[in-house]
């Protein structure tokens, strides 16, 4: 899949038309998002799936039938059996155990990338949106990074820093930081003009308080939507990176790296690709669903027109 910045960027872009949601944005929306999310049956299912997956991964040491890194070449490339429910890979490692442990790393990559991108992007976006003299330089640099095809930027960074999970996380975080920064910058630009912010400034509240309590607090909802998509895209992008040879520690593999290995032997040992392929697909799928439902729930127009949500 493409790194997915377009999907992530395009939405706020589109909605940022002068007649769009931004102008009518109201601060009281943020309390209701969880309730709205829970109102959608599909979203609840997706959320339950994601939570279950996270729990399974977290409990991997308890659940995994075998050591995921222990090789046993004598039983390599065996199909599913009572001893190995999901078969073994080309080093005779138990696929199920690797899948459980791999979930930890994949979800960690998704979460860490998102966290770094959100923190860094939000900081840059706030600075650029709030102080207009910083806007030019910050946005030019971010546009410069944005202009790279994300996959290429990430490969180059991983190769330069040397392979490893840290490099992958840094690389992907850098790819998504401009996306978050752009979003926060655009909300900041709007919120900055709001009467209550001007009032806060008049009574002499320091910038730091205004930024934190008014601007950022009011950007939380779109940020959460954005973050959901970034988690999904980051997990998939990590798989693409693995495929192109820029991966973390291959011994403790991510789902992406497992899928890459499975792809290599797809005609010989279907189970190798099927297991990681399915969980990877479902995870990204569920994250997308949650993101969609959230976005529509948070869009004020959706209150009147429930049908705006693509999937209920």
């Amino acid at each position: 899949m493409p790194v997915g910045r377009a999907g992530a960027v395009a939405r706020p872009k589109l909605r940022s038309r002068p007649s769009g949601w931004r102008a009518t944005y109201a601060p009281d929306q943020r309390r209701s998002w969880l309730r709205l999310l829970l109102a959608s049956r599909v979203a609840v299912l997706a959320l339950a799936f994601l939570i279950g997956l996270a729990a399974l991964s977290a409990l991997a040491p308890l659940l995994a039938p075998a050591d995921p890194e222990l090789v046993n070449p004598a039983v390599r490339l065996r199909g599913p059996s009572p001893e190995h429910w999901l078969g073994t890979d080309d080093l005779g490692r138990d696929v199920l155990s690797r899948l459980l442990y791999g979930g930890r790393i994949s979800l960690l990559v998704g979460a860490a990338v998102t966290l770094v991108a959100v923190v860094l992007g939000a900081a840059l976006g706030l600075l650029a949106g709030y102080w207009s003299w910083l806007d030019g330089p910050i946005m030019r640099v971010l546009d410069g990074i944005m202009a790279f095809p994300g996959v290429l930027l990430a490969i180059a960074i991983v190769v330069s820093l040397g392979p490893g999970l840290g490099s992958v996380i840094i690389a992907l975080a850098l790819v998504y930081t401009p996306v978050v920064a752009r979003l926060i910058r655009s909300t900041t630009l709007v919120i900055k003009q709001m009467p209550y912010v001007e009032a806060a400034r008049c009574i002499g509240l320091p910038h730091r308080v205004i930024l934190w309590r008014y601007v950022l607090a009011n950007s939380v909802s779109p940020l959460i939507v954005q973050a959901t998509f970034i988690v999904a895209y980051a997990i998939l992008a990590e798989a693409s990176l693995s495929f192109l040879g820029a991966s973390g520690n291959p011994e403790a593999a991510t789902w992406g790296a497992m899928l890459r290995d499975g792809q290599r032997l797809v005609s010989r040992a279907w189970w190798l690709a099927l297991a990681p392929g399915t969980v990877l697909f479902l995870t990204v799928f569920a994250l997308n669903l949650v993101g969609d439902v959230l976005r529509d729930a948070l869009d004020p127009r959706a209150h009147e027109r429930r049908e705006d949500a693509p999937v209920q």
Binding site: L70, V71, P73, D90, L91, G245, S247, P250, E251, R264
Partner: peptide, 16 residues
């Protein structure tokens, strides 16, 4: 390197 799968697989076993 993982670019030569045989070398990589052998190395992992040797390591253990």
């Amino acid at each position: 390197t993982q670019e030569i799968q045989q070398e990589y697989n052998a190395t992992v076993v040797i390591k253990q």
